[in-house]
Design a protein around this nucleic acid. Sequence first.
DNA 1: TAGTTTTGTTAGACTACCCTAACTTTATAT
DNA 2: ATATAAAGTTAGGGTAGTCTAACAAAACTA
Lengths: 218, 218
Amino acid sequence: MLSQTEENYLKALFHLTSETANKSETGTNELAAALNVKPATANDMLKKLKEKKLINYEKYGKVSLTAAGRRQAIEVVRKHRLWETFLYEKLQFSWDEVHEVAEQLEHIYSPKLIEQLEKFLGYPEFDPHGDVIPNAKGELKLQARKTLSQVMVGKSCKLVAVKDNSASFLQYVVKVGLGLSSKIKLISRQEFDGTTEIEVNGKKSMVSQKFADNIFVV
Amino acid sequence: MLSQTEENYLKALFHLTSETANKSETGTNELAAALNVKPATANDMLKKLKEKKLINYEKYGKVSLTAAGRRQAIEVVRKHRLWETFLYEKLQFSWDEVHEVAEQLEHIYSPKLIEQLEKFLGYPEFDPHGDVIPNAKGELKLQARKTLSQVMVGKSCKLVAVKDNSASFLQYVVKVGLGLSSKIKLISRQEFDGTTEIEVNGKKSMVSQKFADNIFVV
DNA sequence: TAGTTTTGTTAGACTACCCTAACTTTATAT
DNA sequence: ATATAAAGTTAGGGTAGTCTAACAAAACTA
Ligand SMILES: [Mn+2]
Ligand SMILES: [Mn+2]
Ligand SMILES: [Mn+2]
Ligand SMILES: [Mn+2]
């Protein structure tokens, strides 16, 4: 069985090399940054994960998950998202509170627990942030979606998910009047820095490029 | 914040020095045995816990929890029993399956989670094994109860809790036809080894002294 | 193409938790 | 009261995961 730490590294690799990130491999420094450790530390773990055949990696080369590594990573993501859904749906947590606790709960080992939890929640498809919950087989349908920053001025779209899961970002999203399924109209965008004016429920707001990069819409 | 390991040591100390155990202090070897580690390992931790003022301990002396240590231990017990109740009541776990998973869940840190979980469960008083769930203040009402081995021949009693929480014991209990609230009649007891004949729902069974020591009744 | 910057690796050290083997202290039993 | 047994401690060592500092390779840039 994998340690919590190993699971966290695999999950980080999954997020850094997924469709969402638009690339299929990453590097030591990026991985280290994602996990808030130093590159030397990440390097040690890369050797270990390679030894366990969970990643593809050669000294000074790029890093990617093997099929086995991806399978393990997806299991962690599945547990994370099911727990977030539980906290949100059953325990009245707000969507900016669920992530932190799910970071702990995702490491609980018990196949029966996850199976029963999923059943208890009614086999949910999405977590509170709009992300797809992988099924028990590790299958994960990818969503056709783009970021708010990719939407053209004048067009309208619907918020389907958020990229960043931090409480500070999510609270900001709420403050702007947004939530899952919000309808957003693009009023204007500055060429210079990508600052965008949007309209939500008749209310206009200015949001940064960075903000728009973290909002997924269809 | 305490590590999982420290929490496990405090919880073990709590169980070894509680009313149920009929003593208020314990020793290095007993503690080590309870945690499946060697005495040398337990000794290291005793020094550490003393340093943190969570236990009363002097070299070669007996060990007991300080008020602060007891408070922490009870919090772990509270979480353990609430999670067991959740698994049993909401996720269709059987009473012999809950303990193992609760051993992991009891270490999740989130005051809001426990508060909401308790509310979600309807502020339960007892866990699936009949043990009292401490309240949020760390208060824990002690139960007037004795073991089946203390009941006199000819008397009847009601099963209110089990001492051992292992799957093997609990499955055995079920096999004998027992569960929480079962009415038990004491038919006979051998002087020699304490083997006892009991009657449950008209069905007679022979149980060992050890078995009877692990059944709490009123 | 030759710096220079970025990225990645290695060596050595630290903490937490665990072990074995040897030792010391305390308790028990003649 | 002494010998033996039981309980407890210490010394030294291992692994996992982290760090800093020094170094090596690759990528970029002028
Ligand atoms: Mn999350
Ligand atoms: Mn999420
Ligand atoms: Mn239990
Ligand atoms: Mn219990």
